[in-house]
Simulated assay, not measured.
Amino acid sequence: MARRTETARWLRRHVGYPLEAIPLLTIHTLFRLLPLDVASRLGGWLGRTIGPRLAASRKARRNLERALPELTPERRESILVGMWDNLGRVFAEYPHLDEIWRRTEVVGADIVRGLAAAKTPALFFSAHIGNWELNLMGATRNGLPVTAVYRRPNNPAASRMIDRSRSVIGSKLVPKGRDGAKEVLATLRNRGAVCMLVDQKMNDGIPVPFFGRDAMTAPAIAQLAYRYDCAVVPAVVERVEGTRFRLTISPPLELGGTGDKEADVRSVMSHINGMIEDWVRARPEQWLWLHRRWPD
């Protein structure tokens, strides 16, 4: 059994991943050669044409039914199609991040510059809305180096492709896991800034309401904020139209504290989940409904 498992892993890595990478890299190269607007429109068309037919859409439809039961099935289906359009555009826009930044309106840039000048340790949080890569650029392009935590794709070729595209952002990218956690702690100890996308399920997280139902939520941002006396800064990207975006950076949250560590962490995470819910309700087509956010 162990030998069969090892053989399957070897085939996956040396045969499966390269075969997966060929079409992925081909499409990525095409998007890089096309003008930004053309690439984004093509990516959106591919997303909304193919995405709703994929098995992953079953999970998204279930999430929409749970989160937005008051909507008609037709409206939920239009949100699903819009989500795939946005996701296809995000993929197509990876080779054009520099140009996209020049088309982004930034609200609250003075907040970032103030944190950079004061050398205040900061935790930026956001969600998979709009083109979420612009969250990092909002910090780095306003004088604040940032360490960002991300999940590295299983396919090494896909991982290298995305890393090359992200190189223009100027942030330090660290993968989830023990090594990434060490980098985050070192950054905060040195009064630096960290950016986290906090809208994904964490199996060993804490249950916190999200769209009226408990969702397993990573409490790390609240725990780190209290431990290192960090500013906790909301940031959200909206696709305004086509390849034009708005990045809104809000003032740091008022954390407060009762002395009950567990209750304080839960309170902060409830507030954060509430903010993300408001963002999603405002632009439901732009959130990534594919995550397994709630327990089955």
Rank of each mutant, 00 (worst) to 15 (best):
P295W: 09
T7V: 11
R113K: 13
G170R: 06
P73M: 00
E133M: 03
G274K: 09
G205L: 06
D163Q: 15
R191W: 05
E133S: 03
I50S: 04
I22C: 08
E285Q: 14
T72M: 01
W294V: 06
P73R: 00
F125T: 01
A282V: 07
S40L: 13
G205F: 07
E133H: 08
L33Y: 09
R76A: 11
H291E: 08
N86M: 06
L68W: 10
R58Q: 13
A21I: 08
R164G: 03
A139Y: 09
H14Y: 15
V240P: 02
K172G: 06
V146L: 08
E238G: 04
L64K: 01
I162L: 15
S159V: 05
G16P: 02
G242S: 14
T147G: 05
S159E: 15
A220H: 07
R76S: 11
I162G: 01
L54D: 04
L97I: 12
T140P: 04
T7S: 12
G205C: 09
G130V: 03
L253F: 13
P175M: 02
Y94M: 03
Y94A: 00
L290W: 03
L173E: 08
D163W: 13
E77S: 05
R3C: 10
G130H: 04
A220M: 07
L25K: 10
V174S: 00
W84V: 01
A39P: 14
G114T: 12
P234A: 01
A215C: 13
R191S: 15
T120C: 06
W287K: 02
V194C: 02
G138I: 06
N273E: 10
R164E: 09
G242T: 12
R4I: 13
V38K: 14
E183S: 12
R32C: 11
R152P: 08
G43W: 12
A181E: 04
E6Q: 15
A92S: 10
A282W: 09
A222C: 05
R281F: 10
V233E: 00
R152S: 11
A67C: 10
R89I: 06
N273K: 07
M1V: 12
G257L: 13
A186S: 06
Q286P: 05
V107G: 03
E77D: 15
V208P: 05
A60W: 00
G212Y: 14
T5V: 11
V184Q: 00
V280G: 06
S171E: 09
E277N: 14
L54R: 11
I249A: 00
R53T: 12
A39Q: 09
G108T: 11
V233T: 04
S78N: 05
G51L: 00
N154S: 13
E285A: 12
L36V: 11
P295R: 02
G256F: 11
L34K: 05
R13A: 05
V237Q: 01
P156K: 13
